[in-house]
Nucleic acid binder design. Structure first.
Length: 824
DNA sequence: AGCACGCCGACT
DNA sequence: GTCGGCGTGCTC
């Protein structure tokens, strides 16, 4: 290292462009290094942990540098591959490095200070304090560890900051910035014999407890559990298992501790389970799977990416497992991406059977401490303890891999891989392809219904294509039948929301003790309420959407901002009390089912019923164990779950998906219907699918019936080409937001005009989206379609220039402009 | 994102 | 006159 002043450029966890330079004080020069976290103060008083991106000796000229306060890490927590990856994400998706940092690192590793306020005992008032000041003092005197938020709450004041400032000047209070490390190692409470007791004294001690039966029992259990005197090395006994085993309480245990017979000690532990799962050999592949794996390997010889296009239930997971095994044997890491947590449950069990504790899981329902532990585990890259396979969702692409050999992206077509809010708006599938490139690893995409873009890449020879068209154990593809809603309604044969066809089939299935899955792409009870006299519909007061009626809590809820209100007793416009619900969601289906099939055991699976960590697993478990007859759900039921006893799948309304105003609506409908149909079918019997629709002749529905992916692909491709959409063109969506709609329109028109100078007819809009106001901000979109072969970097450069020009105009300064590259 | 500063209307 | 609203600008 050079003599003289050293400076470090930091990434701070803030939505700000650029890096921030700090000086490295002499005593930290040996510790601070690229990839480590350092503590700095930023702005007035706030303290953050930044990541050192680079170190240099060019003193900044335009401002005064601050010192780095401390260095947090012994070894870097970000490796050079991650830095390259972050740079790529930031550049490609046009987001700040700070935003990438925020998305990439678990919160427990991002320290942020909190202001602690306390009353000064030695304070004597020179002048009278105002009422609000007195109020604050009272709150401070009555509690300790007060921060701004708790003070605001306790005092009921809107803005406490000016008051704090005044009290600070008067010397009545003091404030302190304290950094909170949210992550703590988990401590486990163990029990052992008190140090003073020798093994041969135990019998004596037991006798001494003759008059304290409960205590004696605990000691007995302890001796049993610890195997003292029997085993060479006694077993560790946790307090929890001891109490459970002896059926007693902690107060009885405490009595023994007080008598100095037992003692309590703590050991920190990983929250993660390293217990040895039973390791089973690989299952042998059937001939179709074996052929597929052979083709995948051949594909990888010449290409870095392969698509495994395998019909539902074709046994793709088993193929993945074989490929993972090969990588682990070579000492490489594997990342196995899934679109959502929901799917991990079934697959984690299968992976653990083969790879035991080499498998790690990472998803958003983990608490923060668990996420920190997974992160650290991979970062340490310890051959005995570190995970070799990570099963994770979107955000696991940011884990500190050092040696990836293979990335598997299961259900590759799923749009949950695209992050929308907050920035960075990355697509995990596309980002993973770059990640693989950085690691010189291979990528395997797997799905029964490839994204049009992905299939097009195969057809162009960029990816290898492997087809697996046989279902596992030769289960037949389900028989798909249509039920014409129009006709049933005209003939008045509908039973509520069920066509006679669907109704009959549900009945038959129930009689045969078979299971049914019903799918509706809409949660809640009814999409909206409507006044029968005047047509008034309740809307969200912050957003421009109608409110969805939820019956379970009798609330009208906005699915955009979460705002909830009581449904109005009468129409707010004409005061009629004749409010009716329109359309139907999963909740209403569940209700109707209970009326028509009172004997059936019914459950609903959607966002509302699976909020807790285990709710989803419990539902799946119940359904698998045949404790349920009918499962009603949203897209959740379409995703990769394999059940053995489902003979019937019903799609209640195919039209709502097909008519969605988006260029991907048809592709998406095909994928949903094909995926949910795939849930039907069992070992010895062909499954049945009933699609209720007003348009039985719709080409997408016809493709679903004929299981004709390629036909659907070709139609879509010609439409995409004609209407200039991906994969022929690259999309960038520009969103402008402002509270004043008029100003917003002016700004958007101006930006669109200036973009047209360069991009001409490739600029579409500005157009207000269907929902043109969210949380009091009006929204407009401008869509840019760029030719695939032109340089995206140059387009983005021009885009930024024009956006900056717009912001340079005084009255448009406050207009928010954000980009979404490859929007979904 | 926070947070400070400064300007303005509307209350004791 | 002060309190609290919000628009604006800055942070190495």
């Amino acid at each position: 290292m050079n003599a003289g002043s050293l400076f470090a450029d930091l990434i701070l966890p803030l939505p700000l462009a650029g890096l921030f330079t700090y000086s490295i004080p002499w005593e930290l020069q040996s510790k601070v290094a690229i990839g480590k976290r350092v503590v700095v103060s930023f702005g007035g008083k706030k303290i953050y942990s930044g990541i050192v991106k680079n170190i240099h000796n060019n003193p900044p000229e335009d401002y005064e540098v601050k010192d780095i306060i401390a260095c947090l890490d012994e070894t870097p927590i970000i490796n050079h591959l991650q830095f390259s990856f972050w740079d790529w994400i930031s550049d490609y998706y046009q987001s700040n490095l700070g935003d990438v940092y925020k998305a990439a690192i678990p919160a427990g590793l991002k320290l942020e200070s909190q202001t602690k306020i306390s009353y000064r005992e030695d304070f004597t008032a020179e002048a009278r304090l105002s009422k609000t000041e007195e109020l604050i003092i009272t709150v401070l005197k009555s509690s300790k560890d007060v921060n701004i938020q708790t003070l605001t709450q306790a005092s009921g004041l809107k803005n406490v900051l000016p008051q704090i400032k005044k009290l600070l000047e008067k010397g009545a209070i003091e404030v302190e910035e304290r950094i909170l490390s949210s992550y703590k190692e988990k401590q486990i409470k163990y029990v052992r014999l008190h140090q003073s007791i020798k093994e041969d004294e135990i019998g004596e001690k037991l006798n001494s407890l003759n008059r304290a039966k409960k205590q004696q029992e605990i000691l007995f259990s302890f001796l049993n559990l610890s195997k003292i005197g029997i085993a060479e090395v006694p077993e560790k006994v946790t307090a929890t298992e001891l109490l459970l085993n002896s059926d007693s309480t902690s107060s009885i245990l405490k009595a023994l501790v007080d008598k100095q017979i037992l003692e309590i000690y703590f050991e920190s532990t990983d929250r993660l389970d390293f217990s040895d799962a039973e390791i089973n050999p690989l299952k042998e592949l059937n001939q179709h799977q074996a052929q597929a794996i052979k083709e995948i390997r051949e594909g990888f010889e010449s290409k870095n990416t392969s698509l495994l296009h395998g019909v539902t239930s074709s046994g793709k997971t088993e193929i993945y497992i074989h490929l993972i095994k090969e990588q682990i044997d070579q000492g490489k890491q594997v990342l196995y991406l899934l679109p959502e947590i929901a799917l991990t449950t079934q697959i984690i069990t299968r992976l653990k059977h083969v790879f035991g504790n080499k498998v790690g899981v990472y998803h958003s329902k983990f608490n923060d401490a668990e996420r920190v532990e997974v992160y650290n585990n991979i970062q340490q890259n310890n051959p005995d303890k570190s995970y070799q396979v990570i099963l994770g969702v979107r955000s696991s692409i940011f884990l500190p891999f050092s040696n990836l050999g293979l990335i598997i992206i299961d259900e590759e077509h799923e749009n949950t891989y695209k992050q929308f809010d907050p920035a960075p708006r990355y697509h995990a599938r596309d980002a993973a392809l770059f990640l693989a490139h950085l690691h010189k690893a291979k990528t395997l995409l797997g799905t029964a219904t490839p994204a049009i873009e992905t299939y097009a890449n195969c057809k162009q020879g960029k990816y290898a294509l492997v087809e697996l068209m046989h279902r596992y154990q030769d289960i037949k593809m389900p028989e798909i039948l249509l039920a014409d809603l129009k006709e049933a309604k005209r003939k008045k044969r509908m039973k509520s929301i069920f066509t006679p066809e669907l109704y009959e089939e549900i009945n038959t299935a129930l009689e045969k003790k078979e299971q049914v899955i019903l799918f509706q792409n809409r949660r809640g009870y009814a999409p909206y309420l409507e006044c029968k006299s005047c047509g008034w519909v309740p809307h969200c007061e912050n957003c421009s959407v109608s409110l969805t009626y939820h019956q379970y809590n009798n609330q009208l809820t906005c699915h955009y901002c979460g705002h909830s209100t009581q449904p109005p007793q009468s129409c707010m416009q004409c005061e009629s009390t004749n409010m009716v619900d329109k359309g139907f969601g999963t909740e209403k289906i569940e209700d109707e089912l209970r009326i028509f099939f009172p004997q059936a055991r019914i459950a609903r699976m959607d966002l509302d019923t699976t909020r807790s960590k285990t709710a989803y697993e419990k539902l799946i478990y119940k359904f698998e164990n045949h404790e349920l007859d009918i499962l009603v759900g949203t897209q959740m039921v379409s995703k990769g779950l394999d059940f053995d006893h489902v003979s019937l799948v019903g799609i209640l309304n195919a039209d709502s998906m097909l008519n969605f105003p988006d260029f991907r609506a048809h592709e998406r409908s095909y994928q949903l219907m094909a995926q949910v149909s795939g849930r039907a079918g069992r070992k010895n019997k062909q499954g049945k699918v009933i699609i209720q629709t007003h348009e039985p002749k719709h080409p997408i529905i016809q493709s679903v019936i004929q299981n004709d992916y390629v036909g659907m692909y070709q139609t879509q491709m010609s439409e995409r080409e004609e209407f200039i959409y991906p994969p022929f063109y690259r999309l960038i969506n520009i969103t402008l937001k402002h509270k004043n709609n008029g100003l917003l329109t002016q700004a958007a028109n101006m930006l669109a005009q200036s973009l047209r100078k360069t991009f001409g007819i490739r600029v579409f809009g500005p157009q207000a989206p269907v929902i043109n106001r969210i949380q009091n901000y009006y929204i407009v979109n401008i869509l840019l379609k760029i030719e695939k072969k032109s340089s995206p970097a140059k387009a983005k450069w021009i885009l930024n220039r024009e956006a900056n020009n717009l912001k340079a105009i005084e009255r448009f300064k406050m207009v928010m402009v954000q980009f979404d590259v490859d929007p979904m």
